[in-house]
């Protein structure tokens, strides 16, 4: 049982009306692994992440987090505590300071005492490199700071898995680095991560495997070096070629 994956996604399907968004997605993620999903927009990358914490209910398929099945789980709130979710829009609670943003879930969901929650919040904010924003409100933070608070908030719940859905897409170019650095650090600390991103440099240098999706299907999944040097699939090659045009050569 040593090699049982942390996450197993099996034949996931989802349609919105007539639009088939996920057409049988299967993959797995071992503890400590870091996989990046890439692909053209509208191919269901975000939907995969949203199905994993069941913000979107899949039509069919199974999702396993260790020995718990998510699609049919009765108490989804319990499972969501184990899955950190960071997304493009940050979702910071506007009426709370950075520290209280991190504390809310600890206090109300995990029912942790105020002092303890405060200590955890401070620790997690430090971990993402934020030391002097405890009492700042979201409106007073930069985009990069906001996203790092959001990451700290997710980490504070002690998740087994972190999902990142285009975490840098809403940021000014000069703020992207600070968020990517935090993500790199998390990966080095051994956090299990599933990341949807267009940041090829990050994908290449941090991920253990790149999953290329198109039209609701996984076209190819492979080690980043293979993907960048000689993808097996012609479509993958075209897509990465285009990205090189847009964002420069990955990781170089």
């Amino acid at each position: 049982m040593k090699n049982k994956p942390l996450v197993q996604v099996k034949n996931l399907k989802k349609s919105f009306g007539d639009n088939l968004v996920l057409d049988g997605i299967s993959f797995s993620l071992n503890t400590g692994e870091n996989k990046v999903i890439i692909g053209p927009s509208g191919t269901g990358k975000s939907t995969v992440l949203n199905c994993i914490n069941r913000l979107i209910m899949p039509d069919s398929g199974e999702i396993w987090l260790e020995d718990k099945e998510i699609v049919t789980a009765e108490n989804i709130n319990k499972i969501r505590q184990e899955i950190g979710y960071v997304f493009q829009g940050f979702g910071l609670f506007h009426h709370l300071t950075a520290k209280k943003n991190v504390m809310l879930g600890l206090r109300k969901v995990k029912k942790i005492s105020k002092n303890e929650a405060e200590d955890i919040a401070r620790f997690e904010l430090n971990r993402v490199g934020l030391t002097d924003v405890d009492d700042s409100y979201p409106a007073q933070l930069s985009g990069g700071q906001k996203q790092r608070v959001a990451i700290a908030r997710a980490l504070a719940m002690q998740p087994k898995l972190m999902l990142f859905d285009e975490p840098t897409s809403a940021l000014d170019p000069e703020l992207i680095g600070e968020v990517l650095n935090v993500m790199k650090k998390l990966a080095e600390e051994g956090m299990t991560m599933l990341v949807v991103t267009h940041e090829m440099g990050f994908a290449r240098s941090v991920s253990d495997e790149i999953i290329f999706m198109e039209g609701g299907k996984i076209v190819e999944q492979n080690h980043p070096e293979v993907m960048f040097k000689g993808p097996e699939n012609e479509r993958t090659r075209q897509f990465l070629f285009k990205l090189d045009d847009l964002y420069g050569k990955g990781g170089e």
Partner: peptide, 27 residues
């Protein structure tokens, strides 16, 4: 109250009512 905040509240395991009381109502 932006839907992002509601998504975020759900993602840390807050239910509908908790989200209303601690996220939507105070704003």
């Amino acid at each position: 109250v932006s839907s992002d905040q509601i998504t975020a509240a759900y993602s840390i395991g807050m239910g509908k009512y908790m989200t209303f009381i601690y996220v939507i109502f105070p704003q």
